[in-house]
Design a protein around this nucleic acid. Sequence first.
DNA 1: AATGATCGCTAAAACGATTAACTTAATAAC
DNA 2: GTTATTAAGTTAATCGTTTTAGCGATCATT
Lengths: 339, 339
Amino acid sequence: MKSRVSIKDIAEALGVSTATVSLVLSGKAEEGRVGKDIAEKIRETAKSMNYQPNGLARSLRIGRSQTIGLIVADISNPFFGILALHIQEEAERHGYTVIIANTSENDQKMGKMIDILKSRQVDGYIIVPTEHGDVYITQLLETKTPLVLVDRYFPQLQTNNVIVDNYKASFDATELLVNYGCKRIALFIYKSALFHMQERKNGYCDAMKKAGLYSQELIYNTIDYAHINEDIVNGIRKLLSETNAVDGIFFATNSISILGIKELLNQKVELQKQIKIICFDKSDVFDFMKNSISYVIQPIAGMGRTAVNILIEQITKEESDFDFVMCKLSTKLVEIENP
Amino acid sequence: MKSRVSIKDIAEALGVSTATVSLVLSGKAEEGRVGKDIAEKIRETAKSMNYQPNGLARSLRIGRSQTIGLIVADISNPFFGILALHIQEEAERHGYTVIIANTSENDQKMGKMIDILKSRQVDGYIIVPTEHGDVYITQLLETKTPLVLVDRYFPQLQTNNVIVDNYKASFDATELLVNYGCKRIALFIYKSALFHMQERKNGYCDAMKKAGLYSQELIYNTIDYAHINEDIVNGIRKLLSETNAVDGIFFATNSISILGIKELLNQKVELQKQIKIICFDKSDVFDFMKNSISYVIQPIAGMGRTAVNILIEQITKEESDFDFVMCKLSTKLVEIENP
DNA sequence: AATGATCGCTAAAACGATTAACTTAATAAC
DNA sequence: GTTATTAAGTTAATCGTTTTAGCGATCATT
């Protein structure tokens, strides 16, 4: 069995030209006016010789690779894992392959990954950008590369994007705690200029102000992705040492939630009694605690599918016009039974 | 800014041949004996014209794509997410790109994914095969395609593979419960003919036999991936209804652990008092329970890195000889403090 | 002065597919 | 019987790169 059989091998085996073989094998037998008998013969031979088309050659010729580059910030985070899963499935449904790349929240790595994908001639990008990734996005935009930002975006940039209503989700989440009767509700959030983080913060702030509970010192926003663990441990300890006791916490991301709750338990805090909790994103963890936890759930599958569809739409559209689509999906608040 | 600048554009701009440009840009200026001044000029122009090499054309020409196909069974499972992360990082370190594909434990999808990757001309595969994926693996082996199986493997097939010592891990895990004084230790495991599952079962069985505690009815091996949830709930309920009470459980995978523990808690079982637990794989969840849990931890990063290195070794080796490497890594048992 | 090496670069053929433009033969139209 | 049409293919250029073989020119050797 020859390891690489090409269209040429088939052509030679049957004594026809490669053009005919190509026409038949790419389903253009009708419009290419190839005879039924020879077409059948070509298909047979292709199968028996175990022919596999060379996608690289095809892509080079037609100028499209039928490939989408997906750049995520942390593939080991289940949120992005699930997102990747859905993006991949939707892309496959449209005949696209996905190359997944990881940045570990590192700006330079994001640049590098874009370069790699660019040299792989991907047709478009779905990107969860890093904090200062806007420069690379700008470059891509300048060359009119089809691209969709997911989960995060840059308000100063005109791009396609698929996000959730972070402001509203946070507002509602905070208000839930207010309604439970909490008076001093803390916010735990990354120290990040990324817009979606700001939105989450703003949602919290506005809900607090509306309830007349706002206070600067309740905002713990010094957490850094690079040393998230110690930052959170320190934050929780500081919080517990306050004389004016906190009675509610809003954790603004899933990773912050997990570590925050871990430290609270570590400090023997009675969750939902002493301090009520609400989290952005669901985690398996919540099912395993003595007291259940309320959380904001994001439509991950929908985000992934939407992103793919917007991107493919733009890839296949011939004219390169500039109507970017901004898709804001809504979240759901899952409340525990008896707070 | 022209969107696609090629080697030819640079050549024309400088009045040299494409050969010279290629030589310089691919770092063969020295051996190709290109003058220092012109080489410098080419590099400058390439940068100023924002040249990006076309990897497809290059791959087509040199017959290698510098790409690895990774096929996992479930990318939304953090185990595989983390595995993918490490595989990707190690591959990148060697200048390879990784295309990740997902099978959702579906045999046919595995076949399809291999076809897609094949047409993308990947240089080799790292595969977490599905239950009856051996037929596809056999086909790949026939064409001498470089490939490494990870996490699972088929004993009847001669392949490279990277696995953990499932037998020993399970044996030791079971024995831990025996040493804690458990007399009736149940096993919860997938209904699967996959060898690594059988090994886990065998390790359990032998440890039980050694302790004189073996009994067929303690083995709950009817769990199916497709309806894992109900199967586990039913299993736990049946277990709890036994007159001869179970006092220990070994959960053989992370997904089984999570759902099993969830149902145990649901049924108000006092973990580690009424029933002692040990799990294969670590989960975030364990940190959040009243009583901590012992578990077997797998060297995921090591598995990923090793797989990549074995694969690249085989890809770059010219002779296609047949010494497959079988790498069996050891696990670690993490015990709780006071059982 | 003749020969051979070396240097610096180029021409051109690949890699495997696609496709516009063409050929040839058969058939239809008038 | 001549021309137009159509059916069934083929030719050859092309995508962007790599790479072998080779061409002049310069320099060293005898």
